[in-house]
Design a protein around this nucleic acid. Sequence first.
DNA 1: ACTGCCGGATGACAGATGTCATACGACGGC
DNA 2: GCCGTCGTATGACATCTGTCATCCGGCAGT
Lengths: 204, 204
Amino acid sequence: MSPTIKVLLAEDQSMVREALAALLGLEDDIEVVAQVARGDEVLQAAREHDIDVALLDIEMPGATGIEAAALLHKELPAVKLVVLTTFGRPGYLRSAMESGADAFLVKDAPAAQLAQAVRKVLAGERVIDPTLAAAALAEGANPLTDREREVLRAAEDGSTNAELAAALHLSQGTVRNYLSTAIQKLTARNRAEAVRIAREKGWL
Amino acid sequence: MSPTIKVLLAEDQSMVREALAALLGLEDDIEVVAQVARGDEVLQAAREHDIDVALLDIEMPGATGIEAAALLHKELPAVKLVVLTTFGRPGYLRSAMESGADAFLVKDAPAAQLAQAVRKVLAGERVIDPTLAAAALAEGANPLTDREREVLRAAEDGSTNAELAAALHLSQGTVRNYLSTAIQKLTARNRAEAVRIAREKGWL
DNA sequence: ACTGCCGGATGACAGATGTCATACGACGGC
DNA sequence: GCCGTCGTATGACATCTGTCATCCGGCAGT
């Protein structure tokens, strides 16, 4: 048999991380050689451990799994990348693929697919949920400009225009303009709905 | 040795659920005898399987783990209840305990605590993160009335006052009154922030 | 019986928000 | 060189939101 596949596991919730490690540990040909709980620890751990595959959760402190994927892809292009997420947001899939991911799995897929995906990416295959892929293609690209995204993100917590203006060094009018165009691009009724829609699509 | 502890596992994300099952499967004295993915399937599964402990995630479709815990506690009081959640919201802890839970774990606790908790509740102990317990006691009870909560929940998606009024069969003015008092009780600047705060505390 | 709270409502007012027209400099493509 | 887009800004306007005072009926405590 070929040597075991060495995997780096990045996921912030210890219980889930260790449970996934236990799951992968049941497979004879897979070995979890490193675990990290933060996105910004991925690169260093990957450098230290000579891994074949990195399994990256998206929602992590420090840096998202997608950001970590982009860094890994540039520095260690031989490492295969499996992105794992709770939320099947089409925008996530799109940016994961753009960051060099080889597989994209949602956590409510059957557990068996995890080990499968690890083996497949190592064999050069790409693994993507076809339903999600269709959704990602159907909805088109993110229509928001950088600034619009920034302002929306800042508005998420319920800040007022005045606060947003101060935080982003803009005039209040400009803040309102950006929010207004964002609201229209997303066909929302107000900023709150705009934020919700953008989040849902993975555009923030 | 005593017979193995029979566990029911309720968690909607298959990958996480099966991973947790794998984790518990590593323990000699614990056996996962049933798995469900929805809150409203917990009770029936518990009736069918003669279990010692139910492990319930809070965020599930059908019914929350807390609702499931309340039902189980009433129907099968002998079954010990471990509530598991992604979010360490003090309000969750409070309502979980009120629903008869014996343990409350957050998913970013070390994996070892899971099996530990299962054994402890069976021995009659209660397992609660002391930090969370302090937070739950410190913040006091949910100050919102039923209606205020309802209106806040309905406002979450960015609906306007007019839409809220129509959906809840209230006048627009009443909707605004409820939101206004909720905003003040939560010391928020507007409805968006009020929703965020209430969510954070587990009051919705 | 009285008090207080909840659900529900109205009206008035101030301030926040969303829209639109318009403007200008920078930059990229053609 | 011209056009489109982006970032930034202003001013004006209409509407939405948040606040407050005030009212009513019902119901739980005391």
